[in-house]
């Protein structure tokens, strides 16, 4: 067994081990750590394949950025203080695990059939030389791949704007109460703190809330939110 093959099997074992740990772990944070191990092993595979630059990118983007982002995501969304999946039904998942298992197994059978049944022929011109990062840069600036290069920048711009728009907590002072009501559906919740310049908005909010029946559904909440928004707008000007 050559060194390359040995390295492949070690890395592949780490990669699959990480994934299986993810699938069996209880604590969400352990799942993320297990997955970061998988991402690291995949970076090793890239280096083995002569894709050094890609390996480095993989470590920076996946093990670095995305895993940390995921940890932040988990810390920002604690579930009742517990970060574990409930012990009562840990394996039941969100949909029928049996269906998911059959789907995955069937898909793997098809992929295995296709890959193992193919006699791959290597072209005499194929190369195993490591690829220079400069070559990738050159390709990105060639006339053909310039356009995709531009488009990916637009995609990232949209993702940036979109993430800000969605995640920004822009109305925590007034809309917070509206959201709490909509969520609970019953008693109008009082926000814990009221800033002086928004007192009027809150008064409007409370009037609107008390005017409704308690059992009403969320359809008025939107109008109420508009009302509150209008008052806030007026306060600003």
């Amino acid at each position: 067994m050559s060194g390359g093959t040995l390295a492949f099997f070690i890395l592949a074992a780490f990669g699959l081990g990480g994934v299986t740990t993810m699938l069996t772990a209880r604590r969400v944070i352990h799942m993320v750590l297990a997955l970061s191990l998988s991402f690291l092993a995949i970076a090793g595979l890239y280096v083995l394949l002569g894709a050094d630059f890609l390996g480095v990118v993989q470590i920076i983007v996946y093990t670095g950025a995305i895993t940390i982002l995921a940890v932040f995501g988990i810390m920002l969304t604690p579930h009742g203080g517990l970060e574990t999946e409930p012990k009562s039904a840990p394996r039941q998942g969100r949909r029928m695990p049996l269906v998911a298992f059959l789907l995955a197994a069937g898909l793997f059978a098809v992929l295995f059939w296709a890959v193992a049944g193919t006699r791959f022929a290597r072209s005499p011109f194929a190369s195993d030389e490591p690829v220079d990062a400069a070559a990738i840069g050159g390709l990105l600036l060639s006339s053909r791949y310039l356009l995709p290069f531009e488009v990916i920048s637009v995609v990232l711009l949209v993702a940036l704007i979109g993430a800000i728009v969605l995640a920004k907590d822009d109305a925590s002072d007034t809309a917070g109460s509206v959201q709490a009501e909509e969520h609970a559906g019953t008693s109008p919740a009082e926000p814990p703190t009221v800033r002086a310049d928004n007192a009027e908005a809150h008064r409007a909010d409370r009037t609107a809330a008390s005017a409704r029946d308690t059992g009403e559904s969320g359809q008025h909440v939107e109008k109420e939110a508009q009302l509150v928004g209008a008052v806030r707008e007026a306060n600003r000007e």
């Binding site: 093959t5 492949f8 592949a12 990669g15 699959l16 994934v19 299986t20 993810m22 699938l23 969400v28 799942m31 993320v32 997955l35 998988s38 995949i42 595979l45 394949l49 995921a70 995501g73 988990i74 969304t77 579930h79 999946e85 998942g93 969100r94 949909r95 695990p97 269906v99 998911a100 298992f101 789907l103 995955a104 197994a105 898909l107 793997f108 992929l111 295995f112 890959v115 193992a116 791959f120 290597r122």
Partner: peptide, 27 residues
């Protein structure tokens, strides 16, 4: 090559299984 392709197929399938069965959105 076949080793790599089978490894990636496994990774894909396990990822799909995880996406279908895990409860936490981040996972």
């Amino acid at each position: 090559l076949m080793q790599y392709l089978l490894f990636s197929a496994m990774l894909f399938v396990l990822g799909l299984f995880g996406a279908l069965t895990r409860r936490n959105t981040v996972i």
